[in-house]
Structures are given as C-alpha cells and as structure tokens.
C-alpha cells in the first residue's frame, strides 16, 4: 500500500531527493514570508482590537502547527513501530523539538495577545491548559529520547509514548467547545474570519508549513549524515 513511499525511505534516495528540493523549498518559504508580512501589515486595523489583531497572523498558525507537528510525529511513530524503518525513527525524533518550539510560540504570542484583549497574561481555560500540557508532552518525549542510549530502542520506546500522548490532540481541538470559557471558538474553517484578515492568515499559514518542512528535512538530513559519520569513524 505504501510501496511508493518506501522507495524514498531508502536513506540514500532520501538524501538525493531532499537535497535537490531544499533550496526550492527555502526560497518558497522566504517568498511566502515576505508576502505574508506585506499583506499582514497592509491589512486594516480591526474595529475592536486595533493593530493587535496582527498577532493573529503569528499566533494562530503556530497553534495549528503545535498539533499538526505532533500528528506528523504520530504517523512517523506508527511507521517506526510497524515497519521499523530508520528514516521514520529519525523523522519522529526530529519533529519533536520543532513542535515544542511551535507550541511555546503559540503560548507566548497568545499570552501577549491575551493581555490587551482579556486583561490577563494567562487564564486556566481549556484551550490554554491543553496546549500547555502539549508542551510538556513534547518535553517528556525529548527527555526520554535523550535518556536512552541505544538509538533504535529509543525510537521504538518513544514511539509508544508518542502514540499514548496523541490522546491530547482531540482534547486541544475540541477544548473550545467542551469548556466554552475565554478562548474563542473555531473561526477559520467556519468562515468567520473576514477577507482582509483571511488572506494574510492563509499565506502566513503556508509559510509556517513550508518553514516546518524545511527545518524538518534539514534536521533529518543532519542526523543521517551524523550517523554516517559515526559509522565511518567507527570503521576507521
């Protein structure tokens, strides 16, 4: 079923393909960033929030990436457990720090947005709490990886933890409906974001995704090269 995918799971072939793609991806990322910044700053001030609405463009994509990166980790962990492929191990491992940073960024920018809008840096609202838990799940995963010396064993064990931690993803997603406290509900898919804000948001979202793919691929490549170097040093 995944035969076409496994052809690229060969590390040598992966290195070739990702090496050819990365310059293009980086250029596309920088281009979308420039476009998103231009569109964002030329968006009109919100009638209630004024200029602070600009935080939307960095906060919402970061929060979406916080869960999406974890979903990538879960998929990689599944491949790691079922197919026992080294590239899946490395992919799951390298996604974690990126996800942790996106989560932290979502928490910090949300806090900066909460102060002028809600009058407080932090509330124990369902969405905020579950996102904070998500951050700790990333930290626990990274800590467990670093604590196990044997890399193959670390990959399998951490994959189990990643799958268990996946229960938090639906909680984050539905937290705004279950505990209708302070954080606002879903407004992108339901079309409640007005056009002048929607377009810069979508471009910024595209930038976040491209940035993640670029950093992820670069990090996977680094780890594969590191591993190769180690086996060369060991052979010499």
């Amino acid at each position: 079923m995944f035969d076409w995918l496994f052809r690229y799971a060969n590390p040598a072939r992966f290195m070739g393909l990702s090496g050819a793609l990365l310059p293009w991806l980086w250029s596309a990322a920088l281009l979308t960033l420039a476009t998103a910044l231009y569109l964002g700053f030329s968006a009109p001030p919100d009638y209630q929030q004024g200029r602070t609405v600009l935080i939307l463009f960095i906060h919402v994509p970061a929060a979406i990436m916080a869960t999406n990166v974890y979903a990538c980790m879960v998929v990689a962990s599944l491949f790691s457990l079922i197919n026992r492929h080294i590239l899946a191990d490395v992919a799951a491992r390298t996604a974690a720090p990126l996800g942790a940073i996106f989560t932290l960024l979502a928490l910090i920018t949300g806090s900066l947005w909460g102060k002028p809008m809600w009058g407080t840096w932090w509330v124990w609202d369902g969405r905020l709490t579950s996102t904070l838990v998500q951050f700790f799940l990333y930290l626990g995963y990274i800590a467990l990886w670093n604590a196990i010396e044997d890399e193959t064993r670390a990959a399998r064990i951490c994959a189990v933890l990643a799958l268990v931690g996946a229960v938090n993803i639906p909680i984050i997603k539905f937290s705004v409906d279950w505990w209708a406290t302070l954080h606002q509900g879903e407004s992108i898919m339901s079309g409640n974001l007005a056009g002048p804000f929607l377009v810069p948001f979508l471009v910024m979202m595209l930038f976040y995704m491209l940035l993640f793919v670029c950093l992820w691929l670069t990090r996977i490549r680094t780890l594969i090269l590191e591993r190769r170097l180690r086996s060369l040093m060991g052979a010499a």
Partner: peptide, 16 residues
C-alpha cells in the same frame, strides 16, 4: 531500563 528513569518518569506521566 534507564539508570535515571526515576527523573524522567514524572515528566512523562504527570501530563497524562
């Protein structure tokens, strides 16, 4: 199997 498993254990269990 971790020598310092006791330190990591709360970090991965408490969020759950």
């Amino acid at each position: 199997s971790l020598r310092r498993g006791g330190l990591i254990l709360p970090l991965i269990v408490l969020p759950l």
